[in-house]
Design a protein around this nucleic acid. Structure first.
Lengths: 223, 223
DNA sequence: TGTCAACAAATTTTCGACATTACATAAATT
DNA sequence: AATTTATGTAATGTCGAAAATTTGTTGACA
């Protein structure tokens, strides 16, 4: 794949991608010995990559116990979603109010690309394709990219990454009665129409709907 | 001085202290060869220490170019303060609304401890003591600790750490006409009186006042 | 004189060996 | 049976050398 950057950079990206793609089970430990084989890197490199992921909140580090992927819990999901609703709607309002022409272009481009990307590999009910997940990610980032505060955008980005783990592990249930595509279009249209309040409200509904689906999924936990 | 902890721990503390004290010019590079002589540690140790500092935002790491001390940036300080005002006032409102008796106790205790801690080593104008900085940190954390959202508190905590760098750099100017102690008491009193809006407003004033002082300081930069 | 390639120097990054420490489990002694 | 003591496993701490990369310099050629 992409082999640019230092060894640490590569390992960091692969590890993050694997976690977000649901390759590694939430809560499971990440022993150095195994990672060393799987990723072909020394302990120093792995340690550095894991520290970066920990700073982002995708892994946790119990001293003397090593690193683990974050654990999923209903309380955390509730907290996470509430936090995202607050932060993201705030940033979106900023973006809608202050976004320039380039922002509009980025949003349109990202949306178009997402729409044109194949979502499922084997029909509905199967996990979404990595390409679509990526495009989806970029659409939401584009939406917020018009805001002035870089820090706020970084925070929103980290929260989204954490939420992505939940989303990945609840995908099989996303079939039911929901038109995600329509929700996205609604948010975009309101944003580009410079209707800050309505756009933020639509985004909150979008995030809440996802949370509710995941909650329904965890009642019949997989594994 | 303090020789407790591991080698990495010691180097980390010395390096951090030197940066905050302005011993190393902001923006300057930190070549391993020189650090190796100055701090008498191996590359692995230095790397680990620098990584931790980078996670805290005191240094930055351009791959293949090594580490540098962060540069003072007025834009970043403005963005950072604005973000803090938004986040912290929000979390404080939550804490004031939902904090229980234990929260009240924690706030009172932290405040009392901070008031009883010696602030300056050598009279006003000198850097605050590490002990006071610690107590100050814990007071603000206690204030927010009544809020329900763990994620929000974590975000606020990270932002505070980033701001601490600027605060330390601006210390020599903190003498002038400002009663920080009074500001703290005002915030606490309003919070414990369950006056969410007023407390949040006082906190915003507190943060803004600090930013203004730093901005005034950077017009006549030390080095 | 100017450009570019090859080479040399300086720095960062990566690696693996080894000692140390912390924790968990099993064994042994009281 | 309960407490203490070995033992094993895995993370952490430390070091210095080798590999990789960027920067600096020299010299040939147009």
């Amino acid at each position: 794949m992409d082999e640019s950057g230092t060894r640490t950079e590569q390992v960091y990206r692969r590890l993050k991608a694997d976690i977000l793609a649901g390759q590694i089970e939430p809560g499971s430990t990440l022993p150095f010995a195994r990672l060393k084989d799987d990723y072909g890197a020394s302990m120093g490199v792995l340690r550095e990559a894991l520290m970066r992921l920990t700073a982002e909140g995708l892994t946790v580090n119990q001293p003397q116990f090593g690193f683990r992927v974050i654990s999923l819990s209903i309380e955390d999901l509730t907290d996470l979603t509430a936090t995202r609703c607050t932060i993201e709607s705030m940033v979106l309002r900023d973006a809608v109010t202050n976004g320039d022409l380039e922002w509009e272009t980025r949003v349109l481009t990202a949306h178009h690309r997402m729409e044109r990307t194949q979502k499922f590999e084997n029909g509905e009910g199967s996990p979404v394709t990595p390409a679509w997940a990526q495009a989806h990610q970029e659409f939401h980032e584009a939406l917020l990219s018009g805001a002035r505060s870089q820090r706020m955008q970084a925070i929103a980005s980290n929260l989204r990454a954490a939420a992505e783990v939940y989303r990945q592990w609840s995908i099989p249930f996303e079939v039911v009665k929901r038109d995600v595509s329509k929700e996205h279009r609604e948010i975009m249209d309101l944003a580009l129409a410079r209707n800050a309040e309505e756009a933020a409200a639509a985004l909150v509904r979008h995030l809440s709907a996802t949370r509710d689906l995941i909650l329904k999924g965890t009642q019949a936990p997989q594994q």
